[in-house]
Design a protein around this nucleic acid. Structure first.
Lengths: 333, 333
DNA sequence: GCCCGTGACTAAAGCGCTTGAGTTCAACAG
DNA sequence: CTGTTGAACTCAAGCGCTTTAGTCACGGGC
């Protein structure tokens, strides 16, 4: 900037004003300064900016998952890609970290905030009893929760997926087909959306007078998905429809169904709460709820930038996922 | 730091020395300062550090892929998780960005470096004719290439996968089983490792006197994997073994094989150059090369920190992937 | 002709840390 | 007892930018 000032024949402050579209310089000087800056290939040093109170021009995202559980998930990279679309428009960086558990995640937030590394964070995988909102409050760190907590929160924005609506839709469709015994092979019970889905299922079943409907939580792995499937199909009165909380379990589960000599969808219908190549890769092709993680990310990032611009926290909803009916659902025989 | 200095009764510089394990303070003052700092919950401001010449304590990683191609890939999150293990030990942040293409990637490097946002970068998906090494050279930006370029490079470290060895192993095993007509359904031909695998295949086939062996490049998608599989199986003399450059294509391909009324592995053996849940989810289970992306990332991050510490650039190799033989490979009928 | 207001621009402090050039003082050799 | 050394510590500048409190000149109203 000193160079620019010299070459443009003005003071450093004038350069700062000119380059930041602040009043205090005439249009013609502004232009001159801009040209010189361009010519010199000047870029603001984020460090200096951050130091003089502007914030770090960076948002943080930490993913709390053991290394082994990673990579089952196509959801995340797409989410991030949506986030980036918005962030890069505003020249915001994304500081990313993966850690083992929520405690470590909290520690990361503390550190980032103390070191002035981020201006705000995107919180994923909200939990039923989540320590993070309180922490962000305590720190005063702006954040948006991707997925939605059970309650509203005065300082955090939330991007909510309508799990209740989606569940009602799925159950409705299955009921319509004639299913009355449905088992929901759920994900981690510590996650808020798992809990939400389980409750919604119960509520919807009640509303429709379906007695034999229940949820079984798992860890999302193909192994548990398969194990639970085997168990529910071989004990008690057999369900005619299975709803899986992700694609991997659905695929593994469908394989178990056929392995037991039953047919999909003849004997058992299968629905995956996540669409991916996998659903079109196993036979029969799996009926799936298709969410749009890219849009999800985009919205979340927008909310965060709004928050950083001083906007008030709020809750927004992403569009209801669409149920793509493929070959794995039909009326029960 | 001013506060710490005051409370500990020393100058700010003494505090700096004490906290950074630099000589110039007695052990007893150092301890005192440390205690006060601890008590005050002090954390260095990265911005200030960066500004006074210390670097940004951050490394960059940009992924150049169109949004749609993302998420097919379990490789990346695992890679990143390995990277993080090493980075977080050293309190280094990871600045992450996904962009559409390599040009955009180059622009990001320029910006990051000009803005002093990163100290070094991890370069993924090296290409046959890659503009990035030259750029990093021009900028003087330290980098390590994950995957390995065709040639060595004076300033960039490389973490190389032994594609040649792996290919030799796969072909050797198939030959041993009695296969003589092998088709390699490769990935993007612009990627260096694709080229390497194609060459290795040719070389190994020549060495073993196998005439009917070839590679067909694709875009890694299940669609192209399926299409190419159909083509090679229905035209000319039918291969007895197919080697796919990723798991998604292998699974899609295997489905096509059975769809054509052929049996896996009776008529056609299938090998996937990537292991994942998917390989144990389709029937028959797929024989796969099992790499370890976490280790890969860990090694890459280590090389980068070495480089940042002033070490010389060098090439290291990751362990040879293991061929996990499942149900999709056998002697041809 | 004087005063004030205003728009254009400058001077200088400050953000939190590092660092090289001092300063002080105790210990020790001569 | 003096001179020297070196360890322990302080001073102050500087990193690149923002920002507040100016300065300065010009024009218009009285």
């Amino acid at each position: 900037m000193k160079d620019i000032a010299r070459r443009a024949g003005v003071s450093e402050s004038a350069v700062s004003f000119a380059l930041n579209d602040r009043p205090g310089v005439s249009e013609i000087t502004r232009d001159r300064v801009r040209r010189v800056a361009e010519q010199l290939g000047w870029r603001p040093s984020t460090a200096a900016r951050a130091l003089s109170g502007e914030g770090a021009a960076t948002v943080g995202l930490v993913l709390a998952r053991p290394a082994t559980t990673l990579g089952v998930d196509s959801f995340f990279l797409q989410l991030i890609s949506g986030i980036q679309e918005v962030l890069s428009e505003r020249q915001l960086g994304l500081l990313f970290q993966v850690v083992e558990d929520v405690d470590a995640e909290c520690a990361v937030y503390r550190r980032w905030w103390a070191e002035h590394r981020v201006d705000g964070v995107l919180v994923v995988d909200p939990r039923t009893d989540d320590p993070r909102p309180a922490l962000l409050d305590e720190l005063g760190l702006p954040g948006v929760v991707i997925g939605g907590l059970p309650e509203e929160h005065p300082n955090l924005s939330q991007v909510r997926a309508d799990d209740t609506g989606a569940m009602a839709h799925v159950v409705g469709r299955l009921h319509e087909l004639g299913h009355r015994r449905i088992v929901h092979i759920a994900g981690l019970s510590s996650l808020a959306h798992t809990d939400r889905r389980i409750r919604s299922l119960r509520a919807e079943a009640e509303r429709r007078g379906l007695a034999e409907v229940r949820s079984v939580p798992t860890d999302y792995s193909d192994t548990q998905g398969a194990a639970v499937t085997r168990r529910v199909l071989t004990s008690g009165s057999r369900p005619t429809a299975l709803v899986y909380d992700n694609d991997v379990m659905a695929a593994a589960g469908a394989a178990v169904v056929t392995g037991l000599g039953l047919s999909v969808p003849g004997d058992v219908s299968v629905v995956s709460w996540e669409d991916s190549v996998l659903c079109r890769m196993v036979h029969p092709f799996l009926t799936a709820l298709s969410r749009d993680p890219v849009t999800f990310g985009r919205i979340a990032a927008q909310e965060l930038t709004a928050l950083l611009d001083g906007g008030a926290a709020r809750s927004v909803h992403v569009p209801l996922p669409e149920l793509i009916e493929r070959e794995s659902t039909a009326a029960p025989r």
